[in-house]
Amino acid sequence: MKKKLAIFDLDGTLFDTKDVNFSSYKYALEKYNYNLEYEYFCKECYGMSYERFLPEILKDDKVSIHDIHKLKKALYPSNLGQAKINEHLFNIIELLKEKYFLAIVTTASRKNCIEILKYFRKHDLFDLIISYDDVVHVKPNPEGFIKAMKFFNIEPGQTIIFEDSSVGIEAAEKSGAGVFVVNKF
């Protein structure tokens, strides 16, 4: 029986989806007459929940951030060809899967998470996916990580979390688990 847990972030950790997300948000925002610059997106938006960065782009406009996010999710599959897989990390996952439960905790939507996993044929590797849709508080709150540990009844001391973003690393540290920082694969 497995007594350890490995938790992985999706965007920037398992996959480089910066260009996928940028293109999807850029097209969604253009439909509402907003412009999104790549450099701004990379510095201020990527790795964050849309609820944190879209209000800053829209200012106090009447456009719903939820409408833009819904359109972004619809556009996401058409941009998946721009994603890059972290082959080294997936090799590590293959080595871990015999002794560790494998989970994803992401601020991405469940829909987009499953789409990219299926695109790269990696969906069946994971025992649990906790997405933006499954938590009340997103990273830097550790809720998603704690929820995964409780699901498997695994203590933080028996858990390793793979993260790349500052908010994700902060959440992982708050969870009490070990943290492995993924930096530019």
Rank of each mutant, 00 (worst) to 15 (best):
I104N: 02
Y100Q: 03
L14D: 02
D133V: 04
Y76R: 12
I146A: 02
E155S: 15
Q158L: 10
E170Q: 15
F145D: 04
C42H: 05
K147W: 02
T13W: 09
E44A: 06
A6M: 05
D60S: 08
A103V: 10
A74Y: 11
A6R: 04
E98V: 13
D133E: 03
I7G: 09
Y32C: 04
A74F: 12
C42W: 00
Y50E: 04
L89I: 04
N33L: 03
N21Q: 07
L80M: 14
F120L: 07
N141H: 15
K59T: 08
I161R: 01
L102M: 12
F15S: 01
C45S: 06
K150D: 10
S49T: 14
N21E: 01
I116M: 05
N112T: 15
D133P: 00
N141V: 01
G47Y: 12
A103H: 09
A83L: 00
T159M: 01
F185C: 04
K111H: 15
V138L: 10
A74T: 14
P156E: 00
F185K: 12
Y100W: 05
D16K: 00
D11Q: 05
A172R: 11
E30P: 09
K4A: 08
V136T: 13
K70T: 14
Y132W: 10
N86M: 02
K122F: 06
K122W: 04
